[in-house]
Every structure is written in C-alpha cells, then in structure tokens.
C-alpha cells in the first residue's frame, strides 16, 4: 500500500535514509514482530518498534506491573501498577503510533502455546528473564524457522545474539541446557542497572529492524557482550556447535518441550 502524506511526514527521517526509503518503510509497515516479555528488554523494543511503524507487534507476558519493575521497564508508568503488562505496554505503543496493531497474549509462554503464536511473525525478540523461557523461544524458533534476537542482562552486563535457525549458531550451541540443579545455591537477587535494559533492548529492536529491512550485518555467529562499567562492547565469535542438542549433527531435541526450571522457582519473578 502506498504511503499516505501523513505517513511520509511521520516516517520522513526513515525515508530519507538511503537504506530505508519509502520501500523500506512500507516493508516495516507490513512486518510482524513478536516480543516475548513486556519487561526491561521488551519495553524499549516495543516503544521503538511501534514508533518505527512496524505494522504488527505481538506482546506475550503473564505478569502485571509491580513497583519493582518501574526502575527499568520504562514502558510502564506508576499509574499502571497492577495492570497487565501487555495492556500497559500496548497503551503506550499505541499512544506513540496509533497505526500500529498490537496483539496481546496475557499468558506465560509454554511449549503448548508458543508454537501456535509465533508462526506468522517475521522476527521474535526474547525479552524474557528466565532460562526455561529462553530455551523455549530458541527451540520454538528453530522448529518454526523464525529468526530471533536473544538477550540477557545482569548487574552491569548484557549480552545479545541474533539467531537464524538452522543457519547460524543458536542459544543451545553456546549453552547446551539450563544449569544443573543445585548449581545456584540461593535464588538471590543479583540486581541490574536499569538503563542496561534500555541499551540491550534497543539493540534487539535494532536487529529486528535490520532483519526486516535486510540491511547491514546481524550479530549472528557471535555473542555481543556489553559491560556498562567499562563501557566496552565485545563480539565473541562463535561457530555452530556440532554437539548442539538442537541444531547439531545428532540432535537429541526433536520436539518442543518445556525446559525444566532447575535453578529455582521463578514463578513469582518479574521481568
């Protein structure tokens, strides 16, 4: 569909970019991105992708906004306390850009429901806070062949990798499976610098946009690590792992299942 005059004005700073142009903006408007986790990472990703005019954005999150979230989850406001995160996030995204469709899924992602949700999306952003969900997204995107951005943050550090399933190294190529039971003696709160979520979540949105526009180089076959205290980025080169239980030579994982939570019970955790 050709851009309206209003759209040409709204997206003018994209359209004047040689690598985007009117055609690129139209591509964004007809694209679909799924964000799993409307928390620290999902907040900037959702806001920027909505502002950018990504036509359909899906949000998956079972939680409601809690006071401890507000230090970093900038899509949620104090007035949203107690509100479902997906609804709170949708309101802000549509306030920025009413022409974006926001699909909300007020559920915890599981092996049963995720495969029904992700087909049809062009790209998935993993903004979850726990390992079972991260493995689940990795595996579901592998089986459905949907590219995704994985990220993690902790204290003053973050990491990021984009996975093109069956082509580039996946999360399980690096981390075979969740850490063994008892590896972490206590479920202590390690903390995180709020702005770290903004940096890493924004990088995930960047990767999504580059993929949708087919421009630049994605962070594939490399883990990008970021240390806020030294302000250093490093790209650790990786190869697909022949031993990978999912995409390796002799895969042990042949169907989608929920990874057991072996670290501690995260049911009450907030993104």
């Amino acid at each position: 569909m050709p851009l309206s005059e209003q759209q040409i004005e709204r997206y003018s700073r994209h359209i004047i970019l040689e690598q985007v142009g009117g055609a690129g903006q139209e591509k964004l408007l007809s694209s679909k991105v799924l964000i799993v986790g409307a928390g620290g990472l999902g907040a900037p990703a959702g806001l920027y992708l909505a502002a950018a005019g990504v036509g359909t954005i899906g949000l998956v999150d079972a939680d409601s906004v809690d006071l401890t979230n507000l230090q970093r989850q900038i899509i949620h406001h104090t007035s949203d306390l107690g509100v479902e995160k997906v609804a709170s996030a949708r309101n802000k995204m549509q306030a920025i850009n009413p022409e974006v469709t926001v699909e909300t899924y007020h559920i915890k992602a599981t092996a049963d429901n995720i495969r029904k949700i992700i087909p049809g999306y062009d790209f998935v952003i993993d903004g979850t806070d726990n390992f079972p969900a991260k493995f689940l997204i990795n595996d579901a995107c592998f089986f459905e062949r949907i590219p995704f951005s994985h990220a993690g943050i902790l204290r003053f550090e973050g990491q990021l990798i984009t996975v093109l399933p069956r082509e580039t190294a996946c999360y399980r190529c690096i981390f075979h499976s969740a850490p063994p039971a008892g590896a972490v003696p206590t479920c202590s709160q390690a903390g995180v610098l709020g702005v770290l979520a903004g940096v890493i979540g924004s990088l995930q949105a960047t990767e999504a946009m580059k993929y949708l526009l087919d421009i630049g180089d994605l962070v594939t076959n490399a883990l990008l690590t970021y240390n806020a205290l030294t302000l250093e980025f490093r790209k650790v080169r990786l190869n697909r792992n022949p031993d990978c239980p999912l995409c390796g030579e002799n895969p042990q994982i042949t169907e989608l299942t929920d990874e057991e939570q072996t670290i501690c019970d995260l049911n009450d955790s907030k993104h």
Partner: peptide, 15 residues
Amino acid sequence: VEFLYFMGGGHASER
C-alpha cells in the same frame, strides 16, 4: 579462551 555466562533478565540468578 572465552567464558560465556548464563544471563537472564536482570535477577533471579546469581552470576
């Protein structure tokens, strides 16, 4: 040698 750490979403796992 690279040490690559498990990182979740900001809490719930000790580094």
